[in-house]
Design a protein around this nucleic acid. Sequence first.
DNA 1: GGTAAAATTTACCGAACGGTCAGTAAAATA
DNA 2: TATTTTACTGACCGTTCGGTAAATTTTACC
Lengths: 186, 186
Amino acid sequence: MQRKSKTRERILLAAKKLFSIKGFDGVSMEEIANEAGVKKALIYYYFPSKEDLFFEVWQRSIDEMEHAVLKPIQNEGPFMAKLKKLLRSYIDFVRSRRETLQLIERERINIESRQSTLWEKLGERYSEFVERIAQLVKEGKLAAELASDLDETVTAQFIVGSLSSVDKNQLEEVANLILKSLTKKE
Amino acid sequence: MQRKSKTRERILLAAKKLFSIKGFDGVSMEEIANEAGVKKALIYYYFPSKEDLFFEVWQRSIDEMEHAVLKPIQNEGPFMAKLKKLLRSYIDFVRSRRETLQLIERERINIESRQSTLWEKLGERYSEFVERIAQLVKEGKLAAELASDLDETVTAQFIVGSLSSVDKNQLEEVANLILKSLTKKE
DNA sequence: GGTAAAATTTACCGAACGGTCAGTAAAATA
DNA sequence: TATTTTACTGACCGTTCGGTAAATTTTACC
């Protein structure tokens, strides 16, 4: 029972690593098995298919990101403090969990362009995350700290998108740009 | 001679379409052939390999983007006019050339994580594009229209990244956010 | 220590992959 | 008209793919 979950975990870790580097279609089950130090058939003992394996990797990655980014701001008080904390924790996440971020960034587009119902669920899971940030933006508008004509979802996409696409060494600069763009002119 | 280039073009167009939807590893040569209305073997008459086919699709796509985004600002005068024109032309590009943008966004990460010399060239071609926008930022700093402590490359990545990652219907809002974040406080 | 269940490996399958090649039809050249 | 070049096809090759079934080893429990 203990051994079982340990092997399963090793497979998930190996899969996540390789998926993040080469993408879903670029990785074979044999590669994943080798990375995990296991024979290919054993993967099928724990996971019904390559897709199912990827699904679990994806869900876990989004959970991980959501936890790292959203959890720290939950008990924060005033809106501006929350926003700054969000940027801070997002920067920390990008810096410390490169593999997770790369997996998400890489497969996000891929997921959107597959039409199967199962894959769509994965896309929705990601949208949920963005929408939670959009909720924060809404909060800021209600508190009159952000301009009332801001579209919440677009603003959330803007925050995530800009922080995900720049060099990891200068994320603070981007966070400042975001802050400056969002705060009301006085 | 005329027929030859027409077929070649059809193959390139079909490949671009499929690569942009499914990615390099997600598309087979047979699919591309079907999309182009051609037998698979004929593709190898025009292109030595799948990689070579992709290389040409990629180079053309970057050229297309560079032309659409950078050409309009070449003969523009003052810096702020140039910057606004850049945002305008980038928005138009995102709206009208979705396939091209999706190909670039999708394969950019993929290209970076392949270590072969040939693939690295493709990555450099993209970096060139970003660096050209960075040059514009530098211009703005010299003209004292932008804060002097802005990192040019990061700012360029910020502009491209944020405009590439939001819903196409509200790009103007993002352009305004970018403008607000970059212009000096008065 | 025997034994049943769980965990892992070996051996294999049909399909699909990227790529090749001999040959043919159609055009261009002479 | 004869000949060379260009455009294109179908059949096929070796390999790798995702996935399965059966045999073997390891573990847990009495």
